[in-house]
Nucleic acid binder design. Structure first.
Lengths: 381, 381
DNA sequence: ATTCTTCCTGAATCTTTAA
DNA sequence: TTTAAAGATTCAGGAAGAA
């Protein structure tokens, strides 16, 4: 298998320093598009030459010249050997731009022949999947419509064991964060996770992986950890040095985000989210005293919102919100009192805090009043 | 704005039947690739001709010929007018295939000039984001490192109001489920939500939207619902008929259409469900006047709850709830008034109806009062 | 008109403080 | 001593302003 992440046609100089002050730099600047294409084409030709009959190539690019690169691959490998357009999706720290924020890169997957090595990776079923579909055998009737299969006694027929859903061509993997330990200081470094997937679907242990633009050596590190053989090439001597350093101690930092999933960071209940949404709030996830900020400032300052929790007394909640609001320089704070929260309103409410009873509290109060009125009227006849 | 979803170069015949047995069919078969490209190129040329200087084009394709289509766009619009490669991501029922499951389609976004119309849509911050960096102003020291800004007294300085994160070029929108009500039976039908986003970012109300391969008319329906003008073209007469049915069936008003259209793909919003849940309600799905019943009876009879909808005036909502409540022999009814609903409280409120303002309405009133108090205090010195 | 410089942003981590 | 919460930091990549 060959993975290559050649210079993009971005017309920029990529430059970065590592923690020791060593500067890594390469140029994505080309005289003409034709020159760039020719540069890549020669390399693709050679890649095809050295590839086994069952081998595959993965070409990594952004959207600046992906269509030209795919043309080259079509020409050299044949369009019938196109396997997939893999989309690597990530969220990244943002910038201001008129238009949509770039949040993906493309990896073209071609095989040398139709008899290519491929290991299917199975993922979990979507939570919306009906288990009957997985468990029960199905048949097609005369009109071609599918239905569940029953045996002669009218019992459902259980299907053979399934392995899960085959992996899709869209891969959501966190972008290598500027603060990640995995970072070497080399520009355009890719996450190990990405290379692991590519190596796993296209090779077995002991197979050979080639990266002709190996840079910081992510491909090689991933290959080594997965017990594949590997060859790396780079024209920059300091890149090779870096590769050797990394390979001597191949480490992979597991991203907490990847490990626990983004939902682990979402700590609000549906109800709390609905309240915050109703009020027009940005949701705050990592603050005990504040659940959200109103999207609009008042008196030139932010307004913090807190929903009383069931495990908090009212006075506790007030103190938490008040202190957090002061720290964040809020003009006002808003407390949503809930019926579940422990009632205990001994302490005075700060002058810049607005307390609003939750809908359930208001409803109960109103219903009580209405029932009393009704009973009084009854008494009076 | 022009959106086009031309036949793909898939070399298949697309065929599907709707519920009335009408068959829709068109051919994706072309003699040669060159012929296909020429067919598209002519249309792109004309699209550019009729487009305004501030206009944009969105070309929808799968990965079978996307590189050729983008070449055409580069040629006709100029590669400096390439704005984004939008990736539409969806999860779909799986099929066994050696390789990765296709889970995306591509939409190329080009503008006619660099002075193009664009409305940024802001999304929520990631749950991993630290609010301090959103809230606090930052500075750069002499070494170019960033840190938080403090005033002379050592207090943090609050940054100006933020709007959220600009939308990325990767859109996760569910593929039209085979059972979805929105389905017309037309092959390759796209979800309305996808078209809504495209129309929203590239046009304002009253602008003109053209779909030269309109098929079942999803683009036109979305345009109509968003108060844009629209033109649809299709060479298949039964497609045009279908479009007209979809566009004209709700013969009343545009807002009625909106109501019907929205209701077709979601009966209760998450917010409404959360409110009903908060109040301790059983949810009622198919009643215009009632959204839920309290789990507890009052005075030995059920209590109906209704949330005012954005497309209902307050008096309309009151009448609906009151009539439905009488039919169901309710002792009381509860109306939740919302800020989105049309305000129009001319008619008297029935004696057994309890009206509760939504949290947002109460918050707005409280903030207004608090701000006024603050200003008065300022005036008095 | 072109190049250079400065500024701004926020996702996801690392670091420090509090419990 | 361990863990959780809060605070601080980095950097790709556009925009806007300066040279």
């Amino acid at each position: 298998m060959v993975y290559l992440d050649p210079p993009f046609f971005s017309q920029k100089i990529q430059c970065m320093k590592d923690s020791n002050g060593i500067e890594y730099r390469f140029s994505d600047i080309w005289e003409t598009r034709g020159e760039y294409i020719e540069y890549i084409r020669i390399r693709i030709e050679e890649i095809k030459r050295v590839l086994k009959e069952t081998g595959s190539v993965f070409l990594h690019c952004d959207d600046s010249a992906s269509h030209y690169l795919r043309m080259i691959l079509d020409d050299e490998f044949g369009e019938n050997n196109f396997r997939s357009e893999i989309i690597w999706v990530y969220k990244r720290w943002s910038n201001a731009k008129k238009g949509l924020l770039p949040g993906h890169q493309t990896i073209f997957f071609y095989s040398k022949t139709s008899n290519f090595k491929f290991n299917t990776i199975y993922k979990e079923y979507s939570p919306t999947t009906n288990i009957d579909q997985i468990l029960q055998e199905r048949v097609r009737n005369s009109e071609g419509k599918a239905s569940y299969k029953y045996d002669k006694k009218g019992n459902v027929v259980i299907a053979k064991e399934k392995k899960g859903v085959p992996m899709s061509d869209v891969w959501e993997i966190p972008f290598l964060n500027p603060k990640a330990k995995e970072r070497t200081g080399y520009p355009t470094q890719k996450p190990i996770e990405l290379l692991e997937k590519i190596i796993q679907i296209s090779t077995d242990e002991g197979n050979l992986v080639l990266d002709p633009f190996c840079g910081s050596g992510t491909t090689l590190v991933a290959a080594k950890m997965l017990n594949r053989d590997f060859i790396g090439v780079d024209k920059n001597p300091s890149a090779i040095e870096l590769c050797n350093r990394r390979l001597a101690e191949p480490t992979k930092t597991v991203s907490r985000l990847l490990q626990v999933g983004v939902d682990a960071y979402r700590t609000k209940t549906d109800e709390e989210l609905a309240i915050l949404n109703m009020l027009g709030c940005d949701v705050v996830q990592r603050n005990k005293g504040i659940d959200g900020f109103l999207k609009k400032f008042y008196l030139g300052a932010p307004v913090a919102v807190k929903i009383q929790k069931s495990y908090e007394s009212f006075s506790e909640a007030i103190n938490l919100l008040n202190n957090a609001g002061k720290k964040k320089k809020c003009s006002f704070t808003v407390m949503i009192r809930t019926s579940e929260g422990l009632v205990d309103s001994e302490i005075p409410i700060p002058s810049n805090m607005i307390v609003i009873d939750g809908l359930d509290l208001q409803l109960n109060a109103s219903l009580l009043k209405a029932s009393n009125n009704y009973n009084k009227r009854l008494m009076r006849g």
